[in-house]
Design a protein around this nucleic acid. Structure first.
Length: 262
DNA sequence: ATGGTCGGTTGCCGA
C-alpha cells in the first residue's frame, strides 16, 4: 500500500499535474494540503471517475486538506480536538486536519500545520499549540495500536541535514528550536519518520521557495513528513521523495513524499 | 541588497 503526501498549493491550479502524477506514481492513498477551495468547488468528478474515494475538508482561499483513497473511506475525523485554530466548531475553524479510516483498517491523516509567519509573529505560538494538539491526538491514537500514518506539511525541518543552510536557517521559522522540539516530542511518542528511517542521506528536500531560484540552486527544506505508528512502521518497505512534479511548469512549491507499507 | 514568486472568485495577503 503506497501512501503519499503533497501540498499542491491549489488543487484547481494543479489538477493537471495531480492527475498526471496519480497515473505515473500509482499511489493507493494521497494526502493533499493547501487545496484552497471549498468542498463544492473541489474537482470531485475528475477524481471519482478515475476511481478515487474522497474525504474533503476545504475552505475558501486558504488552507484545505483532502484524502484521496483507492479503498472506500469508512470514517472521518474533521477536526483536531482541543486546537484553537483547527477546531472552530462545525467547519468554522481553519481547514488543517482531516483523518480518514480506510476499509482495510488503516487510518491516515492529512495535516497542514500553520506556517507561523515568523518566530516573532502572533502566528508562531499558534503553530506551537497546533503541534501540541497533534501530539495529544497521536497519544490517543497510539492507545488503539492501529496502523496509522500522520502525513502532511508540518512546516518544520526536523534536523540540520533537512535544511539547505544551517546558518541561514538558524532561529528562523521552519527550523526554530521550539518548533523542532514540538515535532521531536511527537516523534518520541514512538512514531517513525518514513523517509528518514530508510534514507540517511542528507539534503533531500520536499519544498523549495518559488523565489530566488531556490529550486535551480537546490535551496530547499524537508518539511513534509509521513509519521508512522509502530504498527505501520513494522510494515514499512520503501519511501521516497518524488522531485518530478517540482520540475514542471506551473508547479507547486512542494513535491510528493511517499511510503510503501506491506 | 527585507529582494524574489506564486495563487486566490485578487488589486493585497499568506505562503
Amino acid at each position: 500500500m503506497k501512501i503519499a503526501t503533497w501540498n499542491v498549493n491549489s488543487v484547481k491550479a494543479r489538477l493537471g499535474h495531480l492527475l498526471d502524477w496519480l497515473d505515473a506514481a500509482a499511489p493507493d492513498v494521497v494526502l493533499l494540503q493547501e487545496t484552497k477551495c471549498q468542498d463544492q468547488e473541489f474537482p470531485r468528478l475528475e477524481l471519482e471517475t478515475r476511481g478515487w474515494h474522497l474525504a474533503l475538508r476545504g475552505q475558501k482561499t486558504y488552507n484545505g486538506v483532502a484524502v484521496l483513497s483507492r479503498l472506500p473511506i469508512v470514517e472521518q475525523v474533521r477536526e483536531l480536538a482541543g486546537d484553537s485554530v483547527a477546531n472552530g466548531g462545525g467547519d468554522g475553524g481553519e481547514a488543517r486536519y482531516l483523518e480518514a479510516k480506510l476499509a482495510n483498517g488503516v487510518r491516515v491523516a492529512s495535516i497542514y500545520v500553520p506556517m507561523g509567519q515568523s518566530t516573532e509573529s502572533d502566528r508562531f505560538p499558534v503553530k506551537l499549540a497546533f503541534l501540541d494538539s497533534l501530539r495529544r491526538r497521536a497519544e490517543q491514537l497510539l492507545e488503539a495500536e492501529e496502523v496509522f500514518v500522520l502525513g502532511g506539511d508540518y512546516n518544520v525541518a526536523p534536523e540540520e541535514v533537512d535544511v539547505f543552510d544551517v546558518r541561514a536557517m538558524d532561529g528562523q521559522v521552519l527550523f526554530h528550536p521550539e518548533e523542532r522540539r514540538r515535532l521531536r516530542r511527537l516523534l518520541f511518542l514512538g512514531l517513525t519518520d518514513a523517509f528518514r528511517a530508510l534514507h540517511p542521506e542528507p539534503h533531500s528536500y520536499s519544498w523549495w521557495d518559488y523565489r530566488g531560484g531556490a529550486w535551480q540552486r537546490d535551496l530547499g527544506l524537508r518539511i513534509d513528513h509521513l509519521l508512522l505508528s509502530p504498527q505501520a512502521a513494522d510494515r514499512l518497505i520503501a519511501s521516497g521523495i518524488d522531485k518530478g512534479p517540482r520540475a514542471k511548469e506551473k508547479c507547486s512549491d512542494h513535491t510528493p513524499v511517499w511510503c510503501e507499507l506491506r
